[in-house]
Amino acid sequence: MLYHLLYPLHTTYSFFNVFRYITFRTIYAIVTALVISFLIGEVVTEMLRRYQIGQQIRSDGPKSHMSKSGTPTMGGILILIAMVGSTLLWADLTNRYVWLVLTATVGFGAIGFMDDYLKCIRKNTKGLLPRYKFSLQILVALIIALGVYRSAAYSPILSVPFFKNIIPDLGALYIPFAILVIVGASNAVNLTDGLDGLVIGPITVTAVAYTIVAYVTGHRTFSEYLLIPYIEGAGELSVFCGAMIGASLGFLWYNAYPASIFMGDVGSLPLGGALGTVAVISKHELLLALVGGIFVMEALSVIFQVASFKSSGRRVFLMAPIHHHFELKGWKEPKIVVRFWILSIILALLSLSTLKLR
């Protein structure tokens, strides 16, 4: 919005020419989302507390979590307001990719809101039934996948990290593949959300990585130099990723140990879905498995646990997702969180190195 209002003034006042630069608008998208979070964070927290929208703690989980019962949840609303608001202010709203990623954010946010509403307000412990929840996720991802696939400037090729000559063309199979990436990312992030600050740290790191990826993918000179697919207009997603960084940092202010607010599904589902969408649009889908390795590890721990228990009656971990396993091993919550953050930073650096190591 500010881009469309102020950039046309550059013909009269040269200062406004800075609005044409994605880097400038990305920086201020970060700052704006952060300021929005600080301005409304206390208001959202108090509103959730007043209406007694609190976290329900699993009785079979770590005993140290029982003290968290009743902590305001659905704090993802704060993230969505800051992220979407900042994007609308600073992004080029004529860019179709911006609207696709906003559709993913709002769509998955609505699904998360329905699940949290049933659990926290209607006191339905099951929430949105898995078959309905999963079906709605696939529907939103299908809309995104079709929007990307039908883009005139798009090609259904797959970029493989570390290998510049391996670029398989998936053809129409790209649609189910894109759905898998988006839905998988959304649910993997959701499974990681279990400790104070655990998920929002890797989300921030992953958003930083994809800010860079989106920028170089949408820059013809950089993409040709790095031998990566050039996607015209994809650079504008850097502004969205910047808004995600600012909103995540703002939420971390309230979610750091000991957390005064939890994000709930209304936060975790759209964050994962948005990252999956950015990965699909920027043609770095497989890279998400590396930079978001923490989310992959958490999801796989649940899959292995369930598969092992159903097949042999034995558990691979003391408890899944894996962060609970470390808790039951005696690790303190802050230590688990910080170590997972460190791993996330290492994976992000490794993933960015693949842009050159090809």
Rank of each mutant, 00 (worst) to 15 (best):
F304P: 05
L300E: 03
V302P: 01
T277H: 07
Q305E: 03
A320K: 02
L328E: 07
Y257K: 15
G293W: 01
H323R: 07
S312A: 12
I303M: 11
A279D: 12
I261A: 04
P270I: 03
K283L: 13
L290T: 14
A289M: 08
G293M: 00
G267P: 00
M319V: 13
M297Y: 14
K283I: 07
H284F: 04
E298Y: 11
V306T: 05
F309T: 06
A289G: 15
L287K: 10
E327R: 08
P321Y: 13
H325A: 10
K310E: 11
I322N: 02
K283H: 15
V306G: 06
F295G: 05
V291A: 15
L318M: 15
S312I: 08
L275Q: 07
H324P: 02
V306Q: 04
L271C: 09
I281M: 09
F295W: 02
G264S: 03
L286V: 07
S260V: 14
G267E: 00
V280Y: 05
P258V: 02
S312Q: 09
L300M: 12
G292T: 06
L275G: 11
P258D: 02
G330L: 12
G264H: 01
G330H: 10
V296S: 06
H323I: 06
F326N: 02
I294K: 03
M263P: 03
L286A: 09
A307D: 07
S268W: 03
L290Y: 00
P321G: 07
F309Y: 15
P321F: 14
T277V: 04
G276D: 06
A289F: 02
M297P: 09
M319W: 11
L269P: 02
M297K: 09
I281E: 13
A256S: 15
R315A: 13
F304V: 07
A299L: 04
R315L: 11
G293K: 00
S308F: 05
G276V: 03
T277D: 13
A289E: 04
K283Q: 15
K283P: 10
A279V: 05
G272P: 01
V291E: 05
V316P: 05
V302A: 13
L318E: 04
A259T: 01
K283V: 07
M297C: 15
L318T: 11
H324T: 03
V316M: 10
L287T: 13
R315D: 04
G293Q: 01
A320E: 01
G273F: 03
F295Y: 09
T277Y: 04
H324V: 05
Q305L: 06
F304G: 06
L318I: 12
Q305W: 11
I261V: 14
P258C: 03
R314S: 14
P270D: 11
E298K: 02
M297W: 08
